[in-house]
Computed example of a mutant assay.
Amino acid sequence: MRARFLGKDPDSIGGNSPTLYATDRTDRATYIAQGWKVTDPRVLADIGPVPDHETLVEIPEDVLKFYTRRYPEREGKN
């Protein structure tokens, strides 16, 4: 599996995360989000158990707009 950069948080300090990537999986469309690890106990309680092989990552809404870069031919069409 490979990852393709889609975009980075425009308000990121020092050019770091949060960032969104698209994978090249052929069986389904998936994304990799680089963001802030969720550690707030109230949020973790709201979500419930997370398997050891998974984690929760918080990313700003502005980063989600980069989803459309996976499908450039769809941009601007609603």
Results as ranks from 00 to 15, higher is better:
Thr68His: 08
Pro41Tyr: 00
Glu58Arg: 09
Leu56Gly: 01
Arg74Val: 09
Leu20Ala: 02
Gln34Lys: 11
Ser17Lys: 09
Tyr31Gln: 05
Asp24Tyr: 09
Thr19Val: 15
Arg74Lys: 06
Leu20Trp: 02
Arg25Thr: 10
His53Val: 02
Val38Asp: 14
Asp52Cys: 09
Lys37His: 11
Lys8Cys: 10
Arg4Thr: 06
Phe5Ile: 05
Leu6Phe: 05
Phe66Gly: 00
Val50Ile: 15
Gly76Ile: 15
Ala33His: 01
Lys37Ser: 15
Asp11Trp: 06
Arg69Trp: 12
Asp40Asn: 14
Ile32Asn: 14
Gly15Phe: 15
Phe66Ala: 00
Arg74Gly: 00
Lys37Ala: 15
Asp9Ile: 12
Gly48Val: 06
Pro10Tyr: 14
Glu75Lys: 08
Thr26Leu: 14
Gly48Trp: 10
Leu44Ala: 13
Val57Trp: 00
Gly14Lys: 13
Met1Pro: 15
Ile47Cys: 11
Asn78Glu: 11
Lys8Glu: 03
Ser12Thr: 06
Trp36Asn: 15
Pro49Met: 10
Thr68Asp: 09
Lys8Gly: 04
Ser17Met: 07
Ser12Asp: 05
Arg4His: 14
Ile13Asn: 10
Val50Cys: 10
Tyr31Asp: 05
Phe66His: 03
Gln34Phe: 04
Gly48Asp: 10
Tyr31Met: 10
Ile32Asp: 08
Asp62Leu: 03
Pro41Val: 06
Thr23Cys: 10
Ala45Arg: 14
His53Asn: 09
Ala3Trp: 13
Lys37Glu: 12
Leu20His: 02
Tyr21Pro: 01
Phe5Asp: 01
Lys65Met: 07
Glu54Asn: 06
Arg42Cys: 09
Ser17Glu: 08
Arg69Glu: 03
Lys65Phe: 05
Ala22Trp: 12
Pro18Val: 04
Asn16Ile: 03
Thr68Lys: 09
Asp24Ser: 15
Thr55Cys: 09
Pro49Phe: 07
Tyr71Gly: 00
Leu56Lys: 01
Glu54Ser: 03
Asp62Asn: 05
Thr23Ala: 04
Gly15Asn: 07
Val43Gly: 01
Glu73Gln: 15
Val43Gln: 14
Gly14Met: 14
Thr39Cys: 11
Ile59Lys: 01
Tyr67Ser: 02
Leu6Thr: 00
Arg2Pro: 04
Gly7Phe: 00
Phe66Pro: 00
Pro60Met: 03
Ile59Cys: 08
Pro72Gln: 12
Pro60Phe: 02
Glu54Pro: 10
Asp9Ala: 12
Arg2Ser: 08
Val63Ala: 03
Asn78Tyr: 08
Asp52Thr: 13
Glu61Pro: 00
Asp11Phe: 04
Arg69Ile: 00
Gly15Arg: 14
Gly76Trp: 11
Thr68Tyr: 05
Arg74Asp: 04
Phe66Val: 00
Lys77Glu: 10
Pro10Thr: 06
Lys77Met: 14
Glu58Lys: 08
Asp24Phe: 07
Thr55Asp: 07
Lys8Trp: 00
Gly14Ala: 06
Pro49Val: 05
Glu54Met: 11
Thr68Leu: 15
Tyr31Gly: 05
Ser17Gln: 08
Phe66Lys: 00
Arg74Gln: 08
Asp52Ala: 14
Ile59Arg: 01
Ile47Asn: 08
Trp36Phe: 05
Arg25Cys: 08
Lys8Phe: 02
